[in-house]
């Protein structure tokens, strides 16, 4: 029995890459940072595929900040996102998510494009992209199109990437007009953790504490990231207080559909989905110093 052997190709430009994809059949596997592909090769989940390495494409690199928009190349690493001044200004929740992703070593290789295309329900960069209504720019040899992240991600591991297409960049409207930018991740430990529940939240508060606008996106509580217009509409115009958020409890429960898995039960995820909402009433935590402990 001969198993098909893997092949590898590394195009040097985007044009080369899309031309190449046009010629290859659907046995090709795109890789950017390579961190997921390496584990899939080890587990045998992918064998004998043509590995198309996009890491050399200059067109996928760089973070461009315009007046109202942030354009992040799909090949930008999570380390670059975590340390980018532009992302810190235009998408602080995304910067926070990138900073707590995996480990330093993984952040140095893994790309935002890879995390999006993996379409894991627990993907850390996804909820921050959902709350900013990210648009993805996809390009092939014949055309370029834009699609919202909500439409692009269809289910766990399922994305609207057509044969021959490459995710070129992510476009975000800057979230400067929000007063709170939150990303909270709950995992079994503080690093090298997979999110059991995560929540990205943008809130515009009036000076007297009324929610003027709010966007919330939960990860790991449904097959895809959950944004609920009902929850957001319910909270808009109300004071950001425990009483208000408590009233949203049933609406959140309706919006999410978590499962039991090896990391946690559905019941836990249901409760923590609301727990993280309650956390919006607090300041972002700063750990006790040693002096405080002693």
């Amino acid at each position: 029995m001969m198993r098909p052997k893997a092949t590898y190709v590394r195009p040097g430009t985007l044009t080369e890459a899309v031309d190449l994809l046009q010629d290859l059949d659907d046995r090709c596997k795109l890789l950017a940072g390579g961190t997921d592909v390496a584990t899939e090769l080890r587990s045998g989940a992918i064998r004998g595929r043509c590995l198309v390495d996009l890491s050399a494409l200059p067109e996928l690199k760089g973070i461009h900040e315009a007046e109202e928009e942030l354009v992040i190349g799909s090949g930008v690493t999570l380390s670059e996102i975590a340390s980018s001044a532009g992302v810190a200004r235009g998408a602080p929740a995304l910067a926070k998510a990138a900073a707590v992703f995996g480990s330093r070593q993984i952040r140095n290789m893994a790309t935002i494009g890879g995390n999006i295309c993996r379409a894991s329900p627990a993907g850390d960069t996804l909820p921050p992209l959902y709350v900013q209504d990210a648009e993805l720019e996809l390009t092939s040899s014949s055309k370029t199109r834009r699609v919202s992240i909500r439409d692009f991600i269809q289910g766990p591991g399922r994305i609207d990437l057509k044969a021959g297409e490459i995710l070129k960049c992510i476009r975000l409207k800057k979230a400067a007009d929000f007063t709170m930018h939150r990303f909270d991740k709950i995992g079994n430990r503080k690093a090298l953790a997979v999110s059991i529940v995560n929540l990205a939240g943008l809130v515009a508060l009036s000076p007297d504490g009324i929610i003027q606008r709010i966007r919330l996106a939960w990860g790991s509580v449904a097959p895809t990231v959950v944004r609920s217009s009902r929850v957001e509409a319910f909270l808009t115009g109300k004071p950001l207080r425990m009483e208000t958020l408590d009233q949203a409890y049933p609406l959140v429960q309706d919006a999410i559909s978590p499962i039991d898995d090896a990391r946690a039960s559905a019941a836990y995820r249901r409760r923590v989905a609301v727990g993280l909402l309650f956390r919006l009433t607090t300041q972002q935590e700063s750990p006790d110093s040693i002096m405080d402990i002693a």
Partner: peptide, 26 residues
């Protein structure tokens, strides 16, 4: 005493905030 068990204990102790602390959601 993982996340799940600690949160269950918090719920049982009545310290999970809000009005839904005591009962498991449907």
């Amino acid at each position: 005493a993982n996340l799940e068990r600690v949160l269950e204990a918090a719920v049982a102790a009545g310290v999970f905030p809000g009005s839904h602390g005591v009962k498991q959601p449907a």
